[in-house]
């Protein structure tokens, strides 16, 4: 992604607002944008979700392939998460090989899901040493108005939880729901005007400093952390956003559960 030159004026403006405990769109410091979640919206995918947070819109789709298990793990299938931010999603995203930013996005989302252990790779084995399921989760940005990380994370887990293993199409048994035992949720905080805010939009990303991504599982266990971009933060700052993340993750987890119950 190419970062446009502007932000000095923008930074100054955001800092003035922060000093008065305000954000440029009127939200509170830890207030997120409205979230819409729709599941099973992609007819060709075995599980799917669409997330909208303000003007940020993303899709996630789950596909299955049959793989040969790795020799050192003959009883396990695989999980692969790939994030793509194509130039459709915004004027600063460029065509070509994946940028460092989009690779970081994919890897942070992947870690949150993988490390939570929500998918037991041994459940994906069909015939030990011969056949296993490879679950491929693709997240795709339609419109980037900031905080793709959280939108990707939410769409990813919702798509996985809605997925059906297409065993009949591959002639290896009956279709069944993919077993997903946990619901890891990511919350991201950006330093804007000297303080952390939740769910930064594009302008706050451009005029801000470092960001911290926290993925919490059920029971508030932490499964992945990532600090991105240049900046210094204190232990007290981290403690505050970690506390905030707990309540927000719980709310978003309820949103996922409700969407799945509505199916």
């Amino acid at each position: 992604m190419s970062i446009p030159l502007v932000p000095n004026l923008l930074r100054a403006h955001l800092a003035e607002l922060a000093a008065e405990d305000k954000r440029h769109d009127g939200r509170g410091q830890f207030q997120g944008r409205d979230v819409e979640l729709e599941i099973n919206c992609l007819p060709r995918a075995e599980g799917s979700a669409r997330v909208r947070m303000g003007d940020t819109i993303v899709l996630a789709g789950v596909k299955f392939q049959i793989m040969t298990p790795y020799p050192d793990r003959p009883n396990e299938g695989g999980l692969m998460c790939s994030a793509e931010v194509r130039p459709v999603a915004g004027r600063n995203w460029e065509a070509g090989p994946p940028s460092a930013e989009s690779i970081e996005l994919g890897r942070v989302v992947d870690r949150g899901i993988r490390e939570s252990g929500c998918i037991n790779t041994e459940d994906l084995c069909i015939i030990p040493g011969e056949k296993a399921w490879q679950v491929i989760l693709d997240v795709f940005a339609v419109s980037d108005d900031g905080n793709l990380f959280d939108a990707f994370g939410l769409a990813a887990i919702a798509a996985l939880r809605s997925a059906t293993v297409p065993a009949e199409r591959f002639e290896v048994g009956e279709d069944m729901p993919l077993d997903v035992s946990k619901t890891p949720i990511m919350c991201s905080y950006h330093k804007v005007g000297g303080r952390f805010v939740y769910d930064a939009d594009k302008r706050e990303e451009l005029g801000g400093d470092e960001r911290i991504h926290i993925t919490l599982g059920d029971d508030d266990h932490v499964h992945s952390l990532q600090k991105g971009l240049k900046g210094i933060f204190t232990a007290a700052e981290f403690a505050e956003i970690n506390e905030q993340a707990r309540s927000r993750c719980a709310e978003l987890r309820d949103l996922v559960n409700n969407a799945l119950e509505g199916e």
Binding site: L42, R44, A45, K63, S82, E84, D138, F140, R169
Partner: peptide, 9 residues
């Protein structure tokens, strides 16, 4: 074409 747009990824 998005990776999930067809039957085979």
């Amino acid at each position: 074409m998005a990776p999930f747009s067809t039957t085979d990824r």
